[in-house]
């Protein structure tokens, strides 16, 4: 099978999805390599997205998303879907905009001065950048785990209970206790902390803190969890624990993970998107991206030529 794919970017925004779906058919076609052996890669100069960004019945869809920080064009015309109960990894060299893109999915970028977003991002068919949309329920629906573990300087119990409390999910103390217990169990932290729930969350080790943050996020029962390099500050053992956790969480949640580690992306994700300097270069099933990249930039990155 030879891949050669040069989809044209859709000139009009509304046609984006249609255009990409056409590419699906192109994928099966035999490429016409001009007398070369092996797969023909898309050249480095070509910055159009290679691969299929859409899935059936998506949870979130992003169409022609452009993000600017002041004059800086951080994300350029990115379109992709996030499916249900999948882990989608975003990889790419530093400064490629993958974190920026991730933070747009629950409007965390609203807090950044001078950040401007165009295009459309929908959650279950509703545009989250609609002026009528309230960010508070959106963030309850799309939770986020950050690069650096950031537990609140409160007790472990209060860390978990904070989200349910402010959303008024559970009134009684026993119900709250239950949420705390199940969240910590889901995050695989229960056995380690059940005897010291009143101790400060900041006293835990780095890996435990990160799992505490994950537990805090799932305590509000979100539908999508965004993870921004959740393991970058952790050692390999803690990383392995969190990766197992991500795999388990996939059954209930949709997870978008940004990572620097290609091994991590290949271990935990079903689909992978490769970003380069603000462009979505290639997207596809993880095993395809890592074994048969179809873009020179992707191949450079996964073979370690840069990044």
């Amino acid at each position: 099978m030879v891949f050669a794919l040069l989809p044209k970017k859709s000139p009009n925004r509304d046609g984006g999805e249609v255009e990409i779906e056409k590419d699906l058919r192109v994928e099966d076609m035999e490429a016409t390599p001009s007398g070369q052996d092996g797969p023909v890669l898309v050249s480095r100069e070509n910055r159009q997205t290679v691969g299929v960004g859409t899935v059936e019945n998506p949870r979130m869809t992003c169409r022609n998303v452009d993000i600017y920080y002041g004059d800086n064009h951080a994300i350029k015309n990115v379109s992709l879907d996030i499916g249900r109960n999948e882990v989608i990894a975003m990889i790419g060299p530093s400064g490629c905009g993958k974190s920026t893109f991730l933070r747009c999915l629950n409007r965390m970028n609203d807090t950044i001065e001078g950040c401007r977003i165009t295009g459309e991002i929908t959650l279950d068919g509703i545009n989250i950048y609609d002026p009528k949309i309230d960010v508070v329920p959106l963030r309850a629906q799309v939770g986020m785990v950050f690069q650096k573990p950031n537990p609140f300087p409160k007790s472990i119990y209060d860390n978990i209970a904070y989200g349910p409390k402010i959303h008024g999910l559970k009134g009684s103390k026993s119900a709250l206790d239950e949420i705390v217990e199940t969240s910590l169990k889901k995050a695989g932290l229960w056995n380690e902390v059940k005897d010291r729930l009143d101790k400060p969350g900041t006293g835990l080790s780095g890996g435990q803190q990160q799992r505490l943050c994950i537990a805090r996020t799932i305590a509000v029962n979100p539908e999508v969890i965004l993870m921004d390099e959740p393991c970058s500050a952790l050692d390999p053992i803690a990383t392995a624990v969190i990766e197992d956790l991500i795999d388990e969480l996939r059954e209930q949640y949709t997870i978008v993970i940004v990572t620097h580690s290609m091994q991590q992306a290949s271990r935990v994700s079903q689909r992978t998107a490769y970003f380069h300097l603000g462009d979505l270069i290639e997207i596809g099933p993880t095993e395809v991206i890592f074994t048969n990249p179809r873009h020179e930039l992707t191949q450079d990155y996964i073979t370690g030529r840069f990044g």
Partner: peptide, 9 residues
């Protein structure tokens, strides 16, 4: 960010 991330206003 942590507070906003769990949906605090």
């Amino acid at each position: 960010e942590g507070a906003l991330g769990v949906g605090a206003s």
